[in-house]
Each structure stands twice: as C-alpha cells, then as structure tokens.
Amino acid sequence: MAEHNDTGRLAEQLAADWLVSKGYELLDTNYRHGYAEIDLVMKHKELLIFIEVKFRSGTGFGYAEEFVDSTKKKLLVKAADHYIYEKDWHKDIRFDIVGVYRDRSGTVNFRHFEDAFY
C-alpha cells in the first residue's frame, strides 16, 4: 500500500478514536459503494453520521474541508443513500468532515465540521 494510503488510514483511525471519546459510536469504516467510499459511519444522539476524514501535515495549502469538492460530495451522498437503504435507517442523517492535522512537532489536532454539506 502506498504511504499516502497508510497515512490516510491512520488519520481515519485517529479521527474515529477522537470521536468515540466524544460519545460517538463507530458503526462502519471504509464503507464502499461503487466508486464512493465513506471513511467513517458513526451514530451520535440518534443521528447517522457519514464522515469524510482529510489529513493535512499543515495548512499551507489549505484546510481539509476545502478538499471535499462537489464531485466527492455527490459520491458520498450516493454511497450514503445505499447505506441507508441497506441498513433500513429511518431517522435523521448528517454529513461531517473531520480534518486531522499534524504539526511540525508531531502533535495531532482535529477540526470537526458538523453538517458540512448535503
């Protein structure tokens, strides 16, 4: 596996652990449907939440949320629709973005954008 894939998987695990520590329940990771992949599927306060995780080693080239373009959003919504149907979910949903940032000293920080799009 390429190094950027390893880094992405690590960022997803760090984000999942961080969200679990905030009371979220992890339901699925790397859910795939067609060409789309949802990094994390979690539940929190009766909401089903589809989360896109983006890793950045700094903010010099922009923040994580800026890298979720309209094409990616459409793919995520399509995969989420399939997940909802597959799991027979009838309650509310939300799409979030979690930015995982590692500074020069190796410290990891998170930025969580709730209800980022739909």
Rank of each mutant, 00 (worst) to 15 (best):
M1W: 10
A2C: 09
A2H: 13
E3M: 06
E3I: 12
N5E: 14
N5W: 10
D6N: 13
G8S: 08
G8F: 02
R9G: 08
L10R: 15
L10N: 13
L10I: 14
A11T: 10
E12T: 11
Q13G: 10
Q13V: 11
L14V: 09
A15C: 04
A15I: 07
A16M: 00
A16E: 04
D17C: 06
D17Q: 14
W18L: 09
W18T: 13
W18R: 15
L19W: 04
V20C: 01
V20E: 07
K22D: 08
G23F: 00
E25P: 04
E25D: 11
L27Y: 06
T29F: 01
Y31N: 09
Y31W: 09
R32W: 07
H33E: 09
G34F: 03
G34V: 08
G34K: 10
Y35S: 14
A36Y: 02
I38P: 00
I38V: 06
L40Y: 06
L40D: 09
K43T: 12
H44S: 11
K45C: 06
E46W: 01
E46D: 15
E46N: 12
L48K: 09
I49Y: 01
I51G: 02
E52M: 02
V53H: 00
K54P: 05
K54H: 08
F55D: 07
F55G: 04
S57N: 15
S57E: 15
G58N: 15
T59M: 03
T59W: 07
G60R: 10
F61V: 14
G62I: 07
Y63G: 11
Y63H: 15
E65G: 10
E66H: 14
E66I: 11
V68T: 10
V68G: 02
D69S: 06
D69Y: 04
D69K: 07
D69N: 13
T71D: 13
K72I: 12
K72E: 14
K73A: 06
K73M: 09
K74P: 05
K74N: 11
K74R: 14
L75M: 12
L75D: 13
L75P: 05
V77S: 05
V77R: 09
K78N: 13
A79H: 05
A79W: 02
D81C: 05
D81L: 03
D81F: 03
H82P: 04
Y83I: 05
I84A: 00
I84K: 05
Y85A: 14
Y85N: 14
E86I: 10
K87W: 07
D88A: 12
W89V: 02
W89Y: 04
K91P: 05
K91D: 15
D92V: 08
D92E: 15
F95E: 02
D96Q: 01
D96E: 06
I97P: 02
V98E: 03
V100C: 00
V100W: 01
Y101V: 04
R102L: 00
R102V: 10
R102P: 01
D103N: 11
R104W: 11
R104L: 11
S105H: 12
G106Y: 04
G106E: 02
G106Q: 04
G106I: 05
V108M: 00
N109R: 15
N109P: 05
N109H: 13
R111C: 03
H112N: 10
F113K: 10
F113W: 10
F113S: 09
D115V: 07
A116L: 02
A116E: 08
F117P: 02
F117L: 00
